[in-house]
Design a protein around this nucleic acid. Structure first.
Length: 575
DNA sequence: GCCGTTTTCGGCCCGACTGTTTTCAGTCG
């Protein structure tokens, strides 16, 4: 049993305890432990054997014992008993807006409701409205919630949410009275998947009602979920939820910090503030019993007043950033301007839509000094993978272009399939003549984790492999990653001296940011690549940089921040 | 169930909104 599975079970135990109406702090302890474990860089069995597990903050005697049982026996009696005591439909009901553990427990206790279908039936028969604490409106909202759950279960890719947010901001700015407006929440933290848009506005109290009215009247609004003077929520026609909060200009820095989250980060921040006898909320920092906030003009100052180094939004996931800020150990994160060039772009030779000339021009226009072509290898027939003859033709064309370019170079590369047996899709005599080789899996996804991991490691071990491409094969919101042990893969990359890409395509963003810190720890160079199939695709690099930042990566950790000469030398080091 | 320069028990982040109420509970972020 691996870390992820342990974390999932602990999280579920927390939820089950909530549904049972147990001590909420006990439930929280399980949720916290799940989070802590999924953020660990070492594998769980190693931590158990070494005894380190019990020393981790948030994991005490009882949890150590349960986790040990879970890993050793592959099952946990406590969890199985707990699960047996509740119908599975209750957990599902938590996905209905407005229904939390308390109401679900009441529905189950009083009406014997155990599934969403039974819930829908009870609502239609008006049996819910007469329950204590329930009423007509909640009954109706349950029915709507069930509909919504089915219709809007999906989340949204970062660029989709970003675009919707920017449209709202442009619209609201026209209203007047807005002094400041910024995106907060998971969008500001650059999460790969976004469930709602949070927008924060600074305005005079007298202007707030008209701004809120304008927001709920916005043309893209499908349903108004809440409409207050300082907070409103809507569901947009695209299905995504958007929230707007209005605060005073004075409160704005505190509110921006607060609404950027994450929730867990804020809990850590508040408890740190509390130790200094400072209460913090979205309206300010309050010393002791004082009703007057400490004055801060910017979010940076809020951190300063708490004696913390500024924490970039991307890091605010409660994965050690608050402690690091207190030790002034927040890294100087990589920025898009640090990128000097990239690898892994496709052209019309395979499944790209632009020529090498066009791609080169676009790269130079971005100020890049090098661009690595990586069309597909021969087995990728669906993508017009290149035969050896066509590879040679492409090399000739690259040489001709390079003879014209000044201060820019096209690099000869390939995205070579790792075949089912772990061998690479070109013979060594061809592989050795590329400047670099991206190796990736594009077929036979349904293997066991053990076989897939061995396959990828074998591919990576090839003398001529340079970079592992999109390591898990996931397509966010549409295809699950293939089963693969990523810790083993990162270890292998470290052992064999290979690099791993952060594929910047918004559906991939793979290597996952949660693994970047581990790769860094193991000194595995990261290359941020666009996997571009068109000119526009080159711009996706910005998403990859966001993920690198979430993964605590600095300029020195990302190979393609090197200048041209150094980067070419870096690639030669693989040969 | 966890934690402790307030340490073995008692607290564990805090506020807005909604719908149910007539002072509050539940949910959400």
């Amino acid at each position: 049993m691996n870390k992820k599975q342990v974390a999932e079970i602990l999280d579920e135990i927390g939820t089950l305890l909530e549904l049972k109406g147990e001590n909420p702090f006990k439930a929280r302890a399980y949720h916290n432990a799940a989070r802590t474990i999924s953020g660990l860089t070492k594998e769980i069995d190693v931590l158990i054997t070494s005894g380190e597990l019990a020393t981790i903050k948030g994991i005490g005697e009882a949890l150590t014992e349960k986790i040990t049982e879970l890993v050793a026996a592959g099952r946990l009696v406590y969890y199985e008993e707990l699960k047996k005591s509740l119908p599975p439909g209750l957990v599902e009901m938590l996905g209905i807006p407005g229904l939390g553990p308390k109401r679900i427990k009441t529905l189950h206790d009083r009406l014997k409701i155990s599934t969403i279908d039974e819930l829908a039936a009870a609502a239609k028969e008006h049996r819910i409205a007469s329950l204590d604490g329930f009423g007509e409106k909640i009954q109706l909202s349950i029915l709507e919630g069930i509909e919504q759950l089915k219709k809007h279960a999906e989340a949204f890719l970062y660029p989709v949410a970003r675009m919707e947010a920017e449209k709202i901001i442009v619209y609201l700015k026209k209203i007047g009275g807005i002094k400041r407006i910024e995106v907060a929440g998971s969008l500001r933290r650059k999460k790969e998947i976004i469930r709602d848009i949070d927008i924060l506005v600074a305005a005079r109290e007298s202007d707030a009602p008209k701004i809120m009215q304008a927001f709920v009247n916005y043309g893209e609004v499908d349903t108004v979920l809440a409409h207050g003077e300082t907070k409103s929520s809507v569901r947009l026609k695209s299905g995504i939820q958007a929230d707007v909060r209005i605060v005073s200009e004075k409160e704005f820095p505190f509110a921006l910090q607060y609404f950027t989250g994450s929730k867990e980060h804020n809990v850590a921040m508040r408890s740190l503030a509390k130790k200094a006898d400072i209460r913090m909320n979205e309206y300010g920092l309050f010393r002791g019993e004082s009703k007057k906030s400490i004055l801060c003009k910017s979010e940076e100052e809020v951190f300063e007043k708490l004696k913390l180094q500024y924490i970039p939004p991307e890091l605010r996931e409660n994965l050690g950033e608050v402690d690091a800020a207190a030790r002034r150990a927040i890294p100087q994160l990589v920025e898009e301007d640090d990128i000097r060039g990239t690898l892994h772009v496709h052209t019309i030779y395979s499944d790209g839509v632009n020529t090498m000339v066009q791609m080169s021009a676009a790269a130079q226009a971005k100020g890049w000094e090098y661009l690595g072509i990586a069309d597909h290898s021969v087995s990728a027939a669906y993508a017009q993978g290149l035969t050896i003859d066509r590879v040679k033709k492409q090399w000739k064309e690259i040489d001709e272009l390079n003879s014209i370019f000044k201060k820019f170079v096209l690099l000869k590369g390939s995205e070579v399939d790792i075949l089912a047996d772990g061998s690479l899709d070109y013979p060594d005599r061809i592989l050795e003549s590329f400047d670099y080789v991206v190796v990736s899996v594009h077929s036979k996804f349904k293997m066991t984790e053990k076989d897939m991991t061995a396959r990828i490691i074998k591919g990576l071990k090839n003398k001529y492999a340079t970079i592992l491409g999109h390591p898990t094969g996931r397509l966010l919101l549409s295809r699950e990653p293939y089963p693969v042990n990523m810790i083993d893969i990162v270890n292998a990359a470290s052992d064999y001296g290979k690099a791993i890409e952060i594929n910047s395509h918004p559906m991939r963003l793979d290597l996952d940011w949660r693994l970047c810190r581990y790769a860094k720890e193991k000194h595995v160079p990261i290359v941020i690549t666009p996997d571009a199939h068109s000119l526009e695709g080159l711009d996706d690099i910005a998403y990859g940089v966001g993920i690198a930042r979430k993964g605590w990566l600095e300029k020195k950790d990302v190979a393609n921040t090197k200048r041209r000469k150094d980067f070419v030398t870096f690639l030669k080091g693989f040969r």
